[in-house]
Deep mutational scan, measured.
Amino acid sequence: MEVVDPQQLGMFTEGELMSVGMDTFIHRIDSTEVIYQPRRKRAKLIGKYLMGDLLGEGSYGKVKEVLDSETLCRRAVKILKKKKLRRIPNGEANVKKEIQLLRRLRHKNVIQLVDVLYNEEKQKMYMVMEYCVCGMQEMLDSVPEKRFPVCQAHGYFCQLIDGLEYLHSQGIVHKDIKPGNLLLTTGGTLKISDLGVAEALHPFAADDTCRTSQGSPAFQPPEIANGLDTFSGFKVDIWSAGVTLYNITTGLYPFEGDNIYKLFENIGKGSYAIPGDCGPPLSDLLKGMLEYEPAKRFSIRQIRQHSWFRKKHPPAEAPVPIPPSPDTKDRWRSMTVVPYLEDLHGADEDEDLFDIEDDIIYTQDFTVPGQVPEEEASHNGQRRGLPKAVCMNGTEAAQLSTKSRAEGRAPNPARKACSASSKIRRLSACKQQ
């Protein structure tokens, strides 16, 4: 084909351009004929944790799935940006308080904090938690009735009371019990989460009196709706648990309003109706937990002794299953770290194939690490110290990083047969305790 000078094309009309061969290198194709290559998922490591896909996002930050490269346990990490926390009232204080509380709590029905990582340079905090497959609110939203069968609701409620009793025994008032803060594992274990607005009572406090509340409006008791200066913290949790039980068994809320002012007005009056299909035992329990006067409201001991709580409820309806993943529609909620794991395991070791967030990740503290002497050669063979940054567990980050890069360049065919977990650990520049 004859090559045409581009400067001469402006002298031709459209018809003349076609005659000189423009149609031979300008093609129009339908979008259905285009085959897009999927974007390669680059592996990203935060300390010893391999990052997966997004699980959810809230006002405080994002939650992603991660894999512990040492234990191969599935975890969830809450990623918090200090810049964003400053824009939220009491944001930083709530996060630090939640970390302090979770560090000393150990119960099967309370979410466990596994690790805390802090990135000084990017001003990011990573709260590594045990993995929960789904939230209770997500399960309720997945069915038209917006409720659980009585047998399933009873099982979840009993676990909620177990976890709540443990928190109260530790002198902690949750203040925000609701389905949105109750998570579930694949085995059906309920976990109380989000202790950001919780309050730890003084060890020598005479009672459970509280003065502040930041919980969700629909789950607040009349004493808070009416603006009382002080109130019983434990009875606030009992009320919120009662509203939660009402919601998961009926699909409704005892109090509603077009806006928060109308909602608080209705809560302050204390008038509500219980659907007739709840039955006398459940209705009596709800009335005891939603008692207007805090002094007359049920205690956890009274809830445990109630006939509806103690009764064994046979399954009359099919239980609400864990819904498919909202993004991938995966009904099994498979591990989202698998594509990243395959990338590390299947590809040659190259620095361009993975990302390490930083050479140094500070753990379990908000301060910069200490310094240790770096050896410097002298005339008599002895070495003197220069400062060298280290990880919180004493690992020399720069030395590990250099060693990792040197190993990656060394030709050794046997290394390709290593397991995925050992490869992740070798790529991680800074081991965590």
Rank of each mutant, 00 (worst) to 15 (best):
V4W: 08
D5N: 09
P6G: 02
Q8L: 12
M11L: 13
G15F: 06
G15A: 05
S19R: 04
S19W: 11
M22W: 03
H27I: 03
I29R: 07
I29S: 10
I29W: 15
S31M: 04
T32G: 12
Q37R: 10
P38V: 06
P38M: 07
K41C: 12
L45N: 05
I46S: 04
I46T: 09
K48S: 11
G52I: 15
L54N: 15
G56I: 01
S59Q: 15
K62V: 15
V63Q: 02
V66K: 11
L67R: 03
T71Q: 14
L72Q: 09
R74I: 07
K78W: 00
I79M: 02
K81W: 03
K83T: 01
L85P: 11
R86W: 01
I88T: 12
P89M: 13
P89E: 15
V95F: 05
I99C: 14
I99T: 12
Q100F: 05
L102Y: 08
L102E: 13
R106E: 15
K108V: 05
N109W: 02
V110E: 00
V110R: 00
V110C: 05
L113R: 03
Y118M: 15
E120R: 04
E121P: 15
Y131H: 08
C134I: 11
G135H: 15
D141S: 08
D141P: 00
V143R: 09
V143S: 12
P144L: 03
R147P: 01
R147G: 06
R147Q: 02
P149L: 03
C151Q: 13
A153D: 00
H154G: 01
Y156C: 01
Q159E: 09
L160G: 00
I161E: 00
E165Y: 09
Y166G: 09
H168G: 02
H168I: 01
V173R: 02
H174S: 03
H174I: 03
H174F: 01
K178I: 02
G180S: 07
G180T: 13
N181W: 00
N181K: 00
L182H: 00
G187S: 15
S193L: 03
A198R: 01
L201G: 03
H202L: 04
P203R: 06
P203L: 09
A206Q: 06
D207V: 07
T209C: 07
C210K: 10
R211D: 15
R211T: 08
T212D: 12
Q214H: 11
G215A: 07
S216M: 01
S216D: 01
S216A: 04
P217R: 01
A218V: 06
F219G: 03
F219K: 00
Q220P: 01
Q220M: 07
Q220Y: 10
P221I: 02
P222F: 02
P222M: 03
P222N: 15
I224Q: 03
I224T: 01
I224L: 09
I224M: 07
N226S: 04
N226E: 01
G227F: 07
L228Y: 09
F231W: 02
S232V: 04
G233D: 14
G233Q: 15
S240H: 06
S240E: 13
S240A: 05
G242E: 01
G242K: 01
V243G: 02
T244Y: 01
Y246Q: 07
N247G: 04
N247I: 08
N247P: 00
I248E: 04
T250V: 09
Y253W: 03
F255L: 02
N259H: 15
L263E: 06
F264I: 03
N266M: 02
K269N: 09
K269A: 05
K269F: 04
S271I: 07
S271C: 02
S271Q: 07
A273V: 03
G276L: 07
D277M: 01
D277N: 07
C278P: 08
G279I: 11
G279M: 05
P281I: 12
P281L: 08
S283A: 09
D284S: 09
L285H: 00
L286H: 00
L286Q: 01
L290F: 03
E293N: 13
A295W: 10
F298S: 05
S299D: 08
Q302R: 13
I303D: 00
R304K: 10
Q305R: 07
H306A: 11
S307R: 05
S307P: 14
K311H: 02
K312R: 14
K312C: 08
P314I: 12
P315R: 10
P315V: 08
A316V: 04
P319D: 13
P319L: 10
V320F: 06
P321D: 13
I322D: 08
P324D: 14
S325Y: 00
S325P: 13
P326G: 13
D327P: 14
K329F: 08
D330S: 12
R333I: 12
R333V: 07
S334F: 07
S334G: 10
S334D: 12
V337N: 13
P339N: 02
Y340F: 06
L341F: 03
E342L: 09
L344V: 11
H345V: 08
H345S: 08
H345M: 13
G346C: 08
G346D: 02
G346Q: 15
A347H: 00
A347W: 14
D348P: 14
E351P: 13
E351I: 09
L353P: 07
F354S: 10
F354G: 07
D355P: 13
D355Q: 09
D358Q: 12
D359H: 08
Y362V: 10
T363E: 15
Q364E: 01
F366S: 14
V372E: 09
E375I: 14
E375T: 05
N380T: 10
G381F: 07
Q382S: 12
R383D: 12
R383Y: 09
R384E: 13
L386Q: 11
A389W: 06
C391S: 03
N393A: 14
E396S: 08
A397N: 03
A398Q: 14
A398S: 08
Q399T: 09
Q399F: 09
L400F: 12
L400E: 14
K403F: 08
S404H: 14
P413S: 12
R415C: 09
R415K: 08
S419V: 05
S419E: 09
K423Q: 03
K423D: 07
I424W: 04
L427F: 10
L427I: 10
A429R: 12
A429D: 13
